[in-house]
Write a protein that binds this DNA or RNA. Structure first.
Lengths: 257, 257
DNA sequence: GGGCGCCTTCCGATATGTGGAAGGCCTGGC
DNA sequence: GCCAGGCCTTCCACATATCGGAAGGCGCCC
């Protein structure tokens, strides 16, 4: 009878609450798309143009979106200000930055700071020579824990149960990744040394990473130092380990961790 | 007839769209309230507890909110990552930071970076000795343009119409502020010098500020240097002005401005 | 042990957002 | 100069998400 009752077969059955719509709009922006027109935003978010239009109007009024000089839409300064409040990133970044700068000034080597997020590590800060094309890792980027020195430092000093859970999941959805057994051995070595060693695939470099622990002994972040392959690791390992300790000490003093 | 048409007199007539609700939830967090319980959040946002509960559940799933170790709610790392995309703050901060660090390393004096936002200046970066109690200005803080060297540098090199509009509004809602005529003279002096001079009320210091212009000649940010009152300004004025120029040059090269 | 605050879940009525469609405005091609 | 195809804006009937009270389960402190 009522033919229109039949779902158009293509109509997304996705339940889209209003907060999810806001999220879709905001997360349509990324590093390659910092500025979007209304239509582009509508397409990327998968929302009808009229809905996008209304919501964007409100977001502009609230300061969560802004218009640039070309009238394109971009994330508003208010969102940046909100982001300053995330305890996990901002606090530790403020504390670590001076020590990272000192290390960078004395060695001239790339320095990175990361925090754990589930089974990934998020790059929070990165100091390195400003060279065209060498913009990896990018701040905000997420990588698997076992793929970098920062991640290995975090994993090696995590609770044993977490380590085992991570290794178990690794061996499950493993595709061209390293052997869990290899990772397990590296983790033991990392704990013994006090710092992680990881060779970079894309360059003749190795990264040395050391963790920053909170008062409960859990790793809340890690710093890494990238040296040329063939460099004697012990002195540089001690260097990054001491930087991590200095950050940790300051974080404790300031109640960050 | 229909008595229920009478508004309950107390019922908030506030039109609360769903995006505004999301905004109210998120902006209930601030520097003094980085972590909130669900009930606190509900109260601060002025939203019913059941609504808050449902929306918070969704925001947690989407990563816009997180729970800390005490199960309190806080802004999620995803919001921090979104904030990295704001062109006005993040790009210029990345460019300016190395130059600010050099200046800080050589002089040991406090350095600040600000961007214009309407008739306010927002503090984007700040390097200074880590001393208890001296945590002003805070990053993210907004101040009137005429209240600081950074703001004056921005205003002095803005379009004349904007300056006049600002001064006009200043004289309108003026309360214990400085004479617009005084500000006007200071602006002229700033343009003549190439840097702004502003004495700090709360300390025996003066701040020197210089603008960073985009290719169109509009100020997109400004840096300032805080020196002791009585210091000979010219050499330090040149110093901060040169830092601003170096930032500007790099920003142009990288297409930031 | 009782009281209190917090979190969670349920529900019907209704206020609220939704999105198709249509119109205006520009720009670029022919 | 005119048409085509973007983009942005506005409207309105419909459907749906939201409100807010109430009730139950925790955990904590007095």
């Amino acid at each position: 009878m009522i033919e229109t009752q039949v779902r158009p077969a293509d109509t997304a059955p996705t339940r889209r609450s209003s907060v999810e719509r806001v999220h879709r709009l905001l997360s349509s922006f990324d590093y390659e798309h910092k500025r979007l027109s209304l239509s582009d935003l509508s397409r990327r978010a998968g929302l009808p143009l009229s809905t996008t239009h209304r919501m964007v109007t409100e977001l502009l009024e609230l300061g969560m979106l802004e218009r640039d000089q070309h009238n394109l839409l971009c994330i508003g300064v208010d969102v940046w200000k909100l982001g300053l409040l995330t305890p996990k990133t901002y606090g530790i970044q403020r504390v670590a930055l001076p020590f990272m700068q000192d290390l960078y000034a004395t060695t001239g080597l790339p320095i990175h700071l990361g925090i754990p997020e589930g089974d990934k590590v998020t790059v929070v800060e990165s100091l390195r020579p400003r060279a065209p094309g060498r913009e990896r890792p990018r701040i905000g980027q997420r990588d698997p824990l076992h793929s970098c020195a920062v991640g290995m430092a975090l994993l090696a000093f995590s609770d044993t149960n977490l380590q085992e859970a991570y290794l178990a999941k690794m061996s499950l959805d493993r595709h061209n990744g390293p052997e869990p057994q290899t990772v397990r051995r590296d983790l033991a070595q990392t704990r013994a040394n006090g710092y992680a060693v990881n060779s970079i695939k894309t360059a003749p470099n190795i990264a040395l990473g050391a963790p920053v622990l909170n008062r409960a002994g859990q790793p809340i972040s890690a710093v890494s130092l990238v040296v040329l392959e063939g460099t004697a690791t012990p002195p540089y390992g001690h260097l990054i380990r001491n930087t991590a300790r200095a950050v940790q000490r300051t974080a404790w003093e300031q109640g960050i961790a």
